[in-house]
Amino acid sequence: MMEIRYELTEEDVVAFNVYHVKNSNIGRNSLRWQRLASPLIFLLFAYLLSIFTEIPAAPLLSTFTITAVIWVLFYPKYFYWHITRQVRKMLKEGKNEGLIGEHVLKMQKKGITDSTQNGETIVNWEAIKSFKEDIGHFYLYNSAISAYIIPKREVNADAVRNHLKKWLTL
Rank of each mutant, 00 (worst) to 15 (best):
residue 1 M to T: 08
residue 1 M to E: 05
residue 7 E to F: 13
residue 8 L to G: 03
residue 12 D to R: 02
residue 14 V to T: 08
residue 14 V to F: 11
residue 14 V to C: 08
residue 15 A to H: 12
residue 18 V to G: 01
residue 19 Y to E: 04
residue 23 N to E: 07
residue 24 S to A: 14
residue 25 N to M: 12
residue 29 N to R: 11
residue 29 N to Y: 04
residue 30 S to F: 10
residue 37 A to Q: 03
residue 38 S to C: 12
residue 40 L to I: 07
residue 42 F to M: 06
residue 43 L to C: 07
residue 45 F to L: 14
residue 46 A to H: 03
residue 46 A to I: 03
residue 49 L to E: 04
residue 50 S to R: 02
residue 51 I to H: 08
residue 52 F to C: 03
residue 53 T to M: 11
residue 54 E to D: 13
residue 56 P to E: 10
residue 60 L to Q: 04
residue 65 T to R: 09
residue 68 A to N: 04
residue 69 V to D: 01
residue 70 I to T: 02
residue 71 W to V: 01
residue 78 Y to T: 13
residue 80 Y to D: 06
residue 82 H to V: 01
residue 82 H to M: 07
residue 83 I to C: 13
residue 84 T to A: 15
residue 85 R to W: 14
residue 85 R to C: 10
residue 87 V to R: 02
residue 90 M to E: 11
residue 90 M to L: 15
residue 94 G to N: 13
residue 97 E to G: 03
residue 98 G to L: 00
residue 98 G to K: 00
residue 99 L to F: 10
residue 100 I to Y: 12
residue 103 H to S: 05
residue 103 H to R: 09
residue 103 H to L: 05
residue 104 V to A: 05
residue 104 V to G: 00
residue 105 L to P: 03
residue 107 M to F: 15
residue 108 Q to W: 11
residue 108 Q to I: 12
residue 108 Q to M: 14
residue 110 K to D: 15
residue 113 T to V: 15
residue 119 G to Q: 00
residue 120 E to I: 12
residue 121 T to I: 10
residue 125 W to D: 02
residue 125 W to E: 02
residue 125 W to N: 01
residue 128 I to S: 02
residue 131 F to M: 08
residue 134 D to W: 10
residue 134 D to H: 07
residue 138 F to R: 06
residue 140 L to G: 00
residue 140 L to D: 00
residue 140 L to R: 00
residue 141 Y to V: 03
residue 142 N to T: 13
residue 146 S to Q: 07
residue 147 A to V: 04
residue 153 R to S: 14
residue 154 E to H: 10
residue 155 V to A: 04
residue 157 A to I: 04
residue 159 A to G: 01
residue 162 N to K: 11
residue 164 L to V: 08
residue 164 L to C: 02
residue 164 L to H: 03
residue 164 L to A: 02
residue 165 K to E: 14
residue 167 W to N: 15
residue 168 L to E: 00
residue 169 T to F: 04
residue 169 T to N: 10
